[in-house]
Write a protein that binds this DNA or RNA. Structure first.
Lengths: 147, 147
DNA sequence: CTAGGATCTAGAGTCGGCTCTAGGTCAACC
DNA sequence: GGTTGACCTAGAGCCGACTCTAGATCCTAG
């Protein structure tokens, strides 16, 4: 547990989290940090490894569609400290429902896409002669003749 | 195959597809219809069941994240008719990659969320006395003490 | 005949989440 | 001492995909 790199510049944090330096300043402005970002000489921001860990969680929550206001709320709860775990849990559970719903919907979309891909693959596998003979007038798939 | 409801009003189509009437006009403007939308007396739009079928596909493709320009391109290919199936297939395959990537990412996000939910559930199941005694100073989970 | 509701057009506005600009400071190197 | 290059602030701009507005038209019912 050596004291390595307790202070990271905004550029370094951007590189590690995948967020842009603009986004980091924006997140700070939006109250998405648990602890106030410290400043070095000249007013430059310095971050800790804890900040990076927190941002990593934020990135994942954002990637799963948690809107900024909800993320801000969650941050506030964490900032307030122990005692509000039930509310944090509720927020996470609500979000999990969202994510699973999204996953289900996407999976159903994937089914359709895969089905249509299959239809086109079959169509392109068949030689043209065979195609001309096959059940004329019958659309291969719904979309007005084989969309 | 009786000739029922060959003509639907924009309101009816909105209801069936889940798109708003505004969105339907917008889609038309954006070239997302395979066939030109016919007009009744007074310039009112009338749609066929085929239009509804097509829109249903559009809705699914949009829901899975296909951007409008790509959807327009696909529409153009279908409009052009037979002969460009390979290009349609390529477009769909590319999109499928996108969707599966999205699914993977979401699934990984879900893992984290579920993990954090588990942590909070454990925490809230334990009686307060027990909580006070448990490995003091050790964060329960990364986020600065139990995010 | 009139009122209500659905529709029309063209174009402006909204929203979320950044992203970029302008104009400036500061430290380090050549 | 001049030039990078990373950083600063405040605020404007952008993007995608609608959504909404205004003002007009049209059909149907009472």
């Amino acid at each position: 547990m050596a004291e390595i790199a307790a202070t990271l510049s905004i550029g370094q944090v951007a590189e590690r989290t995948g967020l842009s330096v603009h986004a980091l300043r924006f997140y700070e402005h939006e109250g998405l940090f648990v602890n106030p970002v410290r400043r070095g000489p000249g007013g430059r921001r310095f971050y800790s490894e804890d900040d990076v860990d927190w941002l990593t969680v934020c990135v994942i929550l954002r990637a799963s569609g948690l809107p900024l206001p909800a993320l801000r709320r969650y941050t506030e709860l964490v900032r307030e400290g122990a005692g509000n775990e039930a509310e944090r849990l509720a927020l996470l559970r609500e979000h999990r429902v969202h994510v699973t719903t999204q996953l289900d919907r996407l999976a159903r979309c994937l089914d359709l896409i895969t089905f249509k891909i299959g239809v086109y693959e079959d169509l392109l596998d068949r030689p043209p002669a065979e195609r001309a003979g096959g059940s004329p007038g019958q659309p291969v798939v719904g979309d007005q003749g084989a969309g």
